[in-house]
Simulated assay, not measured.
Amino acid sequence: MSVRPLRPADVPALAPALAALPLMARYRRSADAIAADLAAALARGDGLLAWEAGGEARGLAWFLREGTLGVGGYLRLIALAEGAQGGGAGAALLAAFEAEVAKASRHAFLLVSDFNEAAQRFYERHGYARVGALPGFVLPEVAELVYWRRLR
């Protein structure tokens, strides 16, 4: 099990595994939409890290290294396929994201859905502070909670 850069060859198997997650269903993200988003992100050079287990990508961290509020990196998504949660993969992906961002910035930002209490607890355990909310930012009935952590 390890964290490594996401490869284009990972996307066809990873996208359906992520689309099956309740979070992706809530945001109406199909396997095809996820695959297209990841292909575009790879082409742009976004930060994309894979959690690999058993020789295949079972999760990812998708991020921007800098630019958020002019001072920090932004974690777009950490997602782990069913069965990959709870074993330290999320923490490893988060640490790898922070290490990449820390090369250019002292700040990391992310958004968490107001209904996703498990993710809120995860980020708070890793030193992130809730600093605001964006009501209806993505879905009209959901507030996206803004989290921040000073790096280095």
Score class of each variant (00 low, 15 high):
residue 2 S to D: 12
residue 3 V to G: 00
residue 6 L to R: 03
residue 6 L to H: 04
residue 7 R to A: 12
residue 13 A to Q: 14
residue 15 A to S: 12
residue 16 P to W: 05
residue 18 L to T: 11
residue 22 P to R: 01
residue 22 P to K: 00
residue 25 A to N: 11
residue 27 Y to S: 12
residue 30 S to T: 13
residue 31 A to W: 01
residue 34 I to Y: 04
residue 34 I to V: 11
residue 37 D to F: 00
residue 40 A to G: 10
residue 41 A to N: 05
residue 45 G to A: 01
residue 46 D to H: 13
residue 49 L to V: 04
residue 50 A to M: 13
residue 54 G to C: 10
residue 55 G to W: 02
residue 57 A to Q: 05
residue 57 A to L: 10
residue 65 R to E: 14
residue 66 E to H: 03
residue 66 E to D: 14
residue 67 G to C: 08
residue 71 V to K: 13
residue 74 Y to W: 12
residue 74 Y to T: 09
residue 80 L to Y: 02
residue 80 L to A: 00
residue 85 Q to W: 07
residue 89 A to T: 14
residue 89 A to C: 15
residue 92 A to H: 02
residue 93 L to P: 06
residue 95 A to L: 05
residue 99 A to Y: 01
residue 99 A to I: 08
residue 100 E to W: 04
residue 102 A to P: 10
residue 102 A to G: 14
residue 103 K to N: 05
residue 103 K to T: 14
residue 105 S to E: 12
residue 109 F to L: 04
residue 109 F to A: 08
residue 110 L to D: 00
residue 112 V to T: 08
residue 116 N to D: 13
residue 116 N to A: 12
residue 119 A to H: 04
residue 119 A to S: 15
residue 121 R to K: 05
residue 126 H to V: 15
residue 127 G to T: 06
residue 130 R to G: 10
residue 131 V to F: 11
residue 132 G to P: 13
residue 134 L to K: 15
residue 139 L to G: 01
residue 144 E to D: 14
residue 151 L to K: 03
residue 152 R to K: 14
